[in-house]
Write a protein that binds this DNA or RNA. Structure first.
Lengths: 249, 249
DNA sequence: CGTGTTTGTGCGTTTTTGTGCAGGAATTTG
DNA sequence: CAAATTCCTGCACAAAAACGCACAAACACG
């Protein structure tokens, strides 16, 4: 088994169960605990997991630990949120994924807006619920504790049944070669279904994540219609995406 | 159980109940009181809790000198929650409604419990999610902003598909003549479906609501198996319900 | 091709960490 | 003030991590 392969497996396990024990992983993959420890250390250095004595925890776990921690790059995310909101008009059916950027958008929705928001992200739903005029549809299924969204076949089936006007995706990684990628298997399934069920797909991403990639493929660039970052649309970083036929806001 | 994990659980408990006892935590998590004390000390050093003799307090508790923002009849609800939890064992599939009594139950679930909880109540789901070993299934559909649960035909259909081991209902009104009643049409539909889909139906209700009724009928008394209040089972108020064949805890 | 280098992995040994226990000190409580 | 808790200190012990080393496979390159 290749090292990369093994680390992808470990990361998947962490995202799935929220915690892993070095000991159990070592018998799982049949390598020494030392190797597991080294893998965890590398993943921790890349910020993918949080290493603790005895194993590792998913990132979401520590968010519980630092509750009022200001969101990473919040000011950029607010800028992105503003641009995204300009695409929304009354009466729309809107699918959204989870993630802090989406959350920022949910918080910034103008109070007189009347629209229907559909999501499986608990955090996003909580924001939408506070809004006076928004209709909220919650996609049900098993809850993934790591990503705090509903995942599974029921959720996917439910998304497939609808045809939303627009879909906003919090994006973890996007580049020209790999398209949109992510690191959580179950989240990827959801996002794929959302893309298929929407007339228009909009990716929200901070510039930092442009031209990066993650282990799991979601879709090619040609599936998405629009890309929103905090940068102006004429930033040179955006040029290749515009050339690829994506509208950049 | 990892140390960080345990501390996260403790912190959560502190934030929920505003206080924790080292002694009760130690039997809950099944570690020595010494370990709990050391955890509390670390959390205190990080400023997450305030350590006091015998346990710890939440930060909000000491800052705000109005500690009387308790949930209505909280102490009774805790008592009810304890009784309800005694009915749960590992591996069970459990349907729950919403309401503050159910919430109190969710907060008091012992950390080593492994079970599957199914609910459409956003608040309850949030509590279940914090629990280390519980599998959470969210019932999706439109969210009713008044009751903060998912309501509608999809939700009901989903509930009909399952057969849970036990169902806990937060009960708004119960009396001999009208059975169980409520005042929200959509919530009533949900509760009816839950009752039909469970092998055992348990009503949680503070004594104050015994022998009261509300406009909308949910079901007759013979549909429910058990009634839990904060009163002892031999309280005269309970007598007629025992006579009606309901087990009272 | 051969040889030096890098990389990935496992194995002891030593350190560090996490946990429980015992006994005495400090504190609450009635 | 006396009894009962709770806390602190030091210690023991096991589990995990860190470190250094060995070795083999992959790679680099003249």
């Amino acid at each position: 088994m290749l090292k990369k392969e093994r680390q992808a497996y470990i990361l998947h396990q962490v995202n799935l169960h929220n915690k892993v024990l070095s000991s159990s992983l070592s018998v799982d993959i049949n390598v020494s605990e030392d190797t597991i420890r080294r893998d965890l250390q590398e993943l921790a250095e890349e910020g993918k997991v949080i290493k603790v004595h005895g194993g590792a925890l998913s990132h979401s776990f520590s968010q519980v630990h630092f509750p009022v921690n200001e969101v990473y790059s919040q000011s950029q995310k607010i800028k992105i949120a503003q641009k995204a909101i300009s695409l929304i008009s009354n009466g729309m059916f809107i699918l959204t994924s989870g993630g802090t950027t989406i959350l920022e958008m949910a918080r910034s929705l103008p109070p007189q807006l009347k629209a229907t928001f559909i999501s499986g992200s608990i955090a996003a739903i909580l924001e939408y619920m506070h809004h006076p005029n928004i209709e909220v549809i919650l996609i049900g299924d098993r809850i993934s504790k790591s990503s705090k969204i509903t995942v599974g076949p029921e959720a996917i089936a439910k998304i497939r049944q609808m045809k939303a006007d627009i879909c906003f995706l919090g994006t973890n990684a996007i580049d020209l070669q790999h398209g949109i990628t992510d690191n959580d298997w179950e989240v990827v399934q959801l996002k794929r279904a959302m893309i298929e069920s929407s007339q228009k797909v909009v990716c929200l991403s901070i510039a930092e994540k442009i031209n990066t990639f993650q282990p799991i493929h979601i879709c090619e660039l040609n599936k998405i219609d629009m890309l929103i970052t905090e940068l102006p649309s004429d930033d040179p970083l955006m040029k290749p995406y515009i050339d690829a036929g994506i509208k950049v806001l």
